[in-house]
Design a protein around this nucleic acid. Structure first.
Lengths: 357, 357
DNA sequence: TCGGTTTAGTAAATCGTTTTAGTAGGTTTA
DNA sequence: TAAACCTACTAAAACGATTTACTAAACCGA
């Protein structure tokens, strides 16, 4: 627990610091001009051609001197555009969301957009409240990440890793079928036939598709996934802990397997820990395949073989798509699904199956 | 690279979905009442006592039926409060910022505040632009994370891991001296006398204090840190890669050491990789001490001994402090520094020094 | 029945912009 | 020399709330 220790306090400064500039009206009064003229000039409106350069210069320099700062609220109210989006994530600290956010931000900041972030923490009430609150704050659209959207939203919405088919929302998703092919194919080619699968938590939108596509890919190769070899992650901690527990559960069943396809890298790391505690070596005894390719994957020991999911790109694609739709206005086309390709990254947590198993 | 593939498009729906409710004026017209009355009732103003319950009920139910949504922009403009803060971080994907943000959000959402996030990406121009842009958007205050603030800001500001002493800003910092004591003490007690230190990048606000406090703690124990045993992280990738390179550099010098105090867990993980590639075992040959205690630390192999930094608490403390200051207004006291305590977490990456070294 | 109080409201100003629709005066052009 | 056209602006109406200062009618006590 942090101990809060106020070591010293600043003197007179006061709660509201430094004078904060003037309003347009004050600036106009100071110049003996109307706010109209100032607005025209400062926004470089077409009408402003008739204003002589000299006047313009006077305006610009006064604005600078008096530290004029346009009030974005007032402007937004008038022009009915806020250049602000809402972003809804499950939770910030899970690594997944922040990678996506990174991509979102890269494109938004380039376009002069800002965004309000809100976490729903898997709470039903927040899932309906947050969009409303963001709406009241006049965001122009919403980017959701791994968030269930069950009814048509009031605002243009793009959902990253969303699987519901809802009018008005574009889902940006990984090509899961391809991902499963890559993963299962990799394990199959290494000789694995009994493959365990760690399924994601119920609340993760990818959990079901992931398992289904893996099952399909396995069936296609005549090595159907044994239901006794699937475990589901429990609890919503973003730590490897959940993967560790899941693997413990699986090991307790006594079922044999030579490989594990984990829901993500975090759980793969936890699973490896559990395997090693049982005296099983990775990859000598059991191969472990991760998913996502987070930063730590390459540097784990053993380095994780994993299916890379381009999270940054998914975020930036979501942002681009939403901005495009906003730009097109009323009659924008709304793609239902945009899909993005995974990559197999082979490292050291998977190996050819050994004969003695 | 993601391949963008539009699989299908939704039909008529259009860019701007679902009707979005009415304004107060429309609601008033519909009820044959003035906006004044509605505002009074809806905000439960003291003056509204004289309005009979029946009227109030009419108003409430009409508001619900017509889906009235107060326009927060308009309200904010009028009352001159936005209940919105700005948050400035170096970058979102680094794990550090998102942990802090998590704490910030926990308290803000409870208080009905939202926040705009912006990344400065260590760019000088953004360091001055972002606060201005956030100011124009009328945020009431700013929380910065690991961000240099060199001149008195226009807005009430709290800086997490800030070390500049600037009027108007409260720094929330770790008790670095204690952290160094814990780390150095731990290594010392294990018998280490030649300890290498991985210093943070120039842009990390903690880099200098960290090294200084470590040096002090080491000197106090008569085992001064040899300058030849310090390396600095290079490049701004948030991956263990940078720690890996730093350790390679250090190893290339041929200097001997029995322990490494890394700048953070990420770089510790990279460093361990580099050590192992040289055939050095961790912790048998070299002990490695991390910093932060990120989720992956416990599950790395070997599990990282580390100095835990309560990032969530630092975020929530920052948020609480800023909100308090806003509530107190003009004559709020502005603490210069709030400090928070580290914890030593002993795991498996450090061990007693062996005699053969 | 008169003055005062309570009840149930409303008109209008305001927050800080943008924008529409002018205008007053000078300069061309026919 | 009058119509037409620039030039250099401005008044006032929005945007959607909140808030101050009223008011008209009903009621109440003396």
């Amino acid at each position: 627990m942090p101990r809060k220790s106020t070591s010293s306090e600043r003197p007179a400064a006061g709660g509201l610091p430094k004078s904060d500039g003037v309003s347009l009206k004050q600036l106009a009064a100071h110049l003996n001009l109307s706010t109209t003229t100032l607005s025209l000039v400062l926004n470089d409106a077409p009408t402003a051609v008739s204003i002589p350069q000299e006047t313009k210069d006077r305006i610009f320099s006064a604005a600078r001197e008096l530290n004029y700062k346009p009030n974005y609220l007032a402007r937004s109210l008038r022009v009915q555009r806020t250049h602000t989006l809402g972003v809804i994530v499950p939770e910030l600290s899970d690594g997944y969301s922040s990678m996506v956010l990174n991509g979102v931000e890269a494109v938004l900041s380039k376009q002069g957009y800002f965004y309000l972030t809100a976490s729903h923490l898997h709470r039903e009430d927040l899932l309906v409240e947050l969009p409303r609150m963001l709406g009241e704050r006049q965001v122009e659209g919403v980017i959701a990440v791994d968030t269930p959207i069950r009814s048509e939203p009031n605002l243009p919405t793009v959902n990253v890793s969303g699987h519901e088919d809802v009018a008005g929302v574009t889902n940006v998703i990984l090509n899961h079928q391809h991902a499963a092919e890559l993963g299962v194919g990799h394990l199959y080619n290494l000789g694995h036939r009994r493959v365990a699968v760690i399924k994601g938590q119920e609340f993760s939108s990818d959990s079901n598709v992931r398992l289904e596509t893996i099952s399909d890919a396995a069936r296609k190769r005549d090595m159907p996934i044994d239901p006794k070899l699937t475990v589901q992650l429990q609890g919503d901690s973003p730590s490897p802990e959940v993967g560790y527990s899941a693997m413990k559960t699986l090991l307790a069943t006594g079922e044999k397997f030579t490989a594990v396809f984990a829901f993500n890298d975090i759980s793969a790391i936890g699973a490896i820990r559990a395997l090693e505690e049982m005296g099983l070596r990775v990859p000598a005894d059991v191969s472990v395949l991760g998913f996502d390719d987070i930063y730590a994957a390459a540097f784990h020991n053993p380095a994780l073989t994993t299916i890379r999911q381009p999270l940054f790109e998914m975020g930036s694609l979501a942002a681009r798509t939403l901005l495009e739709r906003l730009a097109e206005g009323k009659d924008a086309k709304i793609p239902e699904v945009l899909s993005v390709e995974p990559t197999l990254i082979v490292r050291n947590s998977t190996a050819r199956v050994t004969s003695d198993k």
